[in-house]
Amino acid sequence: MRLLSGRHLRELMEAYVGEPEGLPPIDLEGQSAFIEEYFAAGAPELKMLFAVCGIALRALSIFLKGKPFSRLTSHEKDELLNRVMSSRNPLLRGVAVLPGLPLLMSYYRRPEVAVPLGFDAKALKEESNLRVVTRDRSLPPKAGQGGEVGK
């Protein structure tokens, strides 16, 4: 079951991710599927809170900006999110912070996003496969790496 409508989720994704230069656009289907999976594996309350925060952001949009979230320009959405995020009221701030967790994670975990930023998990995994470490004690330690511990 979807947490929020596709349109609302897309609006939130776009607002949080914020059109990074030189990186691909959001992938609503793929990222939504990840978010569903991520919440299914986690605490049920968090999934509910995510939906609540999405609705609360809509209400805050009307209260602080005088129009619905969907009608805000991307600049206004940006302003709203960062304003709420800077609040010294922890509950209010939480409304903007919590949705960022799955939304940003779902975007930056995509290889087509992470690789141009310099993080290629697949290449690192392949490299690590060439360097498997065992508990064999026959290897001599590298120079200068004694067993000194404690301070």
Binding site: A15, Y16, V17, G18, E19, P20, E21, S74, H75, K77, D78, L81, N82, M85, A96, G100, L101, L104, M105, Y107, Y108, R109, V113, A114, L117, F119, A121
Partner: peptide, 19 residues
């Protein structure tokens, strides 16, 4: 940390986060 964790450590959303 990898980008997906790094993005969460920044205290901004939207364009500021993206920049």
């Amino acid at each position: 940390v990898p980008p997906e964790i790094h993005a969460l450590a920044l205290p901004f959303a939207g364009r500021r986060n993206a920049r």
